[in-house]
């Protein structure tokens, strides 16, 4: 094999940058419908990769992330109604979600494994009940953004840029000491503690970071749809899809959540247009969850690795390297 002009470490980054550039320039050559699809996929990628920081790297599976989308969306809409420029509200969305994530995490992270997961279902349920009960969220009818000049291209660029940033961030995190600590917590929390890792602090950090990113996505979501209601942003199904994307792709891996988000968002877009399948998406979600859990808990990435390993082992198969 001829020596590669770029090293194996920089090649993925170059490919990533090229793909990012193409996506950011896409409005010049793609129609609005396709851009909408890309927007949806980018939204999914942000949610999946952010969730993966806590759920994948640290192994703390939370089924309550719609709360953060809701916090972000409501922060933006409520402030926009007060006359603040929607895009200026993004930092506050992130901050509020991070604070909420820490507040919830303080009691919840005393629990391990499935007990933590159950509490997160409770949190999302309580937040939803609260949000539909109080008046400032607009109740079940929701709130509309003030009529203004909405520009899809700005929203598109923000969403895609954020998705790219989140992918880069998770890649950087996974190689950092912070990511290593999260990995230690996932593998054996007692051993990690014995090594001097303050597991609660790291879990809180991961929770806050991922919550902040998800909240910003929630803000952009609200800006795009110009409307927010407890039934849409605090929906349990939203929490569910956030968990499903990384699980389908491969929990705790870098490529998994991106892959999962692309497949999942694409499936969802396609399914919603087929009337016969529109009512059976829970079958598909549930069925996928069952299949992945029974046969390959590491998702598509795990399946790929297994296939690659068996090809490498078999004498007929040519060595990839």
């Amino acid at each position: 094999m001829t020596p590669a002009p770029v090293s194996r470490r920089t090649l993925p980054w170059l490919l990533f940058a090229a793909a990012g550039l193409v996506l950011l320039l896409a409005p010049r050559f793609l129609d609005r419908g396709s851009l909408n699809d890309v927007w949806n996929v980018a939204f999914g990628v942000i949610l999946a990769c952010s969730w993966n920081i806590l759920g994948g790297f640290a192994g703390q599976v939370s089924i309550g992330y719609s709360a953060f989308i809701g916090i972000g969306a409501y922060t933006t809409v409520l402030l926009a109604l007060k006359g603040v420029d929607p895009y200026l509200t993004l930092p506050l969305s992130a901050l509020l979600a991070a604070v909420f994530a820490v507040l919830i995490g303080l009691p919840a992270f005393r629990l391990r494994g499935p007990y933590f997961t159950i509490v997160t279902i409770g949190v999302s349920e309580a937040v939803r009940v609260f949000a539909s009960g109080v008046s400032f969220t607009g109740g079940s009818s929701g709130l509309r953004m003030p009529a203004g000049s909405f520009d899809f291209s700005v929203n598109y660029a923000s969403m895609v840029a954020l998705a790219l940033a989140v992918i880069a961030l998770t890649a950087a995190l996974s190689r950092s000491p912070f990511g290593a600590a999260l990995g230690a917590i996932r593998q054996d929390i007692d051993a990690a503690e014995a090594l001097g890792i303050d597991s609660t602090r790291f879990k809180l950090g991961a929770h806050a970071i991922s919550a902040a990113l998800v909240a910003v996505a929630g803000s952009l979501y609200a800006i795009n749809f110009q409307y927010v209601a407890p039934g849409s942003v605090f929906d349990f199904r939203l929490s569910l899809s956030i968990v499903l994307m990384p699980i389908i792709g491969g929990v705790g891996t870098l490529a998994g959540p991106v892959l999962g988000a692309v497949i999942f968002s694409y499936l969802q877009i396609k399914l919603l247009t087929i009337p016969a399948l529109r009512d059976s998406y829970l079958f598909i979600y549930g069925g996928l969850l069952i299949l992945v859990m029974l046969f390959e808990p590491k998702g598509i990435v795990g399946l790929w690795n297994r296939l690659a390993a068996s090809v490498r082992r078999s004498p007929g198969g040519s060595d990839a390297r």
Partner: peptide, 19 residues
């Protein structure tokens, strides 16, 4: 202790029942 895998598996069963 119970595993995440069993929790998520039965979560999937719940979704299928709902549908």
């Amino acid at each position: 202790t119970p595993t995440m895998q069993s929790l998520l598996l039965l979560f999937g069963v719940w979704l299928v029942l709902q549908n």
